[in-house]
């Protein structure tokens, strides 16, 4: 059934993609033509169009320029070089993963506390929900600067922002998941005289896994955003966010777009990786067939 749906969607998705690319190229003509007329005189129409697609610092770079830039900065630069996209991507990825792992652990521990302790449920849970409505990213620059001035630099401040963003979905999902076994299943465990530990590990935890994975997907996307935004303030020099900022300063639009595409690629592969583990685990546990 699932395979059928995938096959049925490929053609529509490709059509939409093609449509976007065409619109992109068409949009690049009016957006860049002002710059072309300033730089060149007496161009025929086709020459003019061709120039708008290949400007050095265009207002809207075309897809092939971005792809070229990505290929250039990915494969033809040394990985350790400051101009390599892989280098910057790796810096961001490290912070993302560190924050994500910290956030997931914190979220799971908090969820366990909330499920097992009524006082914690009543006092913490409303705040967890309220904090979802707050634009947490606004705190990012402050965290970075304060931690820098205490002497903590590099990976950790960014990871903390990522952690902060990723732990909320995990708490909410895990609480829902740990509470998902119904009374009948819990009673059944009781008739087997299961200890609280056994109840947790044999019933509550396994049945929370589908919820956990759904939250992990949201969480990892959020922690990537956190890491990127964490690189914006205070003149960070490496990472995808820093590259976007540098691109803005020097008007290097192609650089911004290529960093953006790299970030999109990272996000997609991270989410894909989680779905892969999810499918594998849930299938092994016979939750998913």
């Amino acid at each position: 059934m699932k395979r059928l749906i995938i096959n049925n969607s490929i053609l529509p998705i490709l059509t939409i993609l093609l449509f976007i690319v065409i619109v992109w190229y068409l949009a690049a003509i009016p957006m860049n033509s002002e710059k072309v007329t300033r730089q060149f005189k007496n161009l025929s129409f086709t020459e003019h169009v061709e120039k708008t697609w290949n400007l050095k610092k265009p207002k809207l770079p075309t897809p092939h320029q971005i792809v070229n830039e990505i290929i250039n900065t990915t494969f033809y630069k040394k990985i350790s070089s400051k101009r390599s996209l892989v280098y910057h991507g790796w810096i961001t990825l490290k912070a993302t993963l560190a924050g994500f792992i910290l956030g997931t652990f914190l979220g799971i521990i908090l969820a366990l506390g909330i499920v097992h302790n009524r006082a914690m449920d009543l006092s913490v849970m409303p705040w967890v929900i309220a904090s979802q409505t707050v634009p947490i990213l606004a705190i990012a620059p402050m965290i970075i600067v304060v931690m820098n001035s205490v002497g903590v630099t590099g990976l950790l401040p960014k990871a903390i922002i990522s952690m902060y963003l990723s732990f909320f979905p995990v708490v909410v999902g895990m609480v829902k998941g740990l509470r998902s076994p119904d009374q009948m299943q819990i009673d059944q465990m009781r008739t087997w005289s299961a200890s609280p530990n056994q109840l947790l590990w044999r019933l509550r935890f396994p049945s929370s896994l589908p919820y956990l994975f759904a939250s992990l997907k949201v969480g990892i996307a959020a922690s990537l955003i956190g890491a990127i935004v964490g690189e914006l303030p205070s003149g960070a020099i490496s990472g995808l966010g820093a590259r976007m900022l540098a691109g803005t300063y020097y008007g290097q639009t192609v650089m911004i777009w290529s960093a953006l595409f790299a970030a999109a690629f990272l996000a997609a592969s991270l989410v894909f990786f989680i779905s892969f583990i999810q499918n594998y685990t849930l299938r092994k546990m016979a939750i998913l067939r």
């Binding site: 969607s9 529509p12 998705i13 490709l14 939409i16 997907k217 990127i228 995808l240 911004i256 989410v271």
Partner: peptide, 28 residues
């Protein structure tokens, strides 16, 4: 047809760090 094409696309874009487009929009 559009629905089947746009929905997966929309789901994908929802997971992307769109905040990163901010500098481009500030430029435009």
């Amino acid at each position: 047809f559009l629905k089947r094409g746009l929905l997966p696309f929309g789901n994908f874009v929802s997971a992307l760090p769109i905040v990163g487009m901010a500098p481009i929009f500030v430029m435009w």
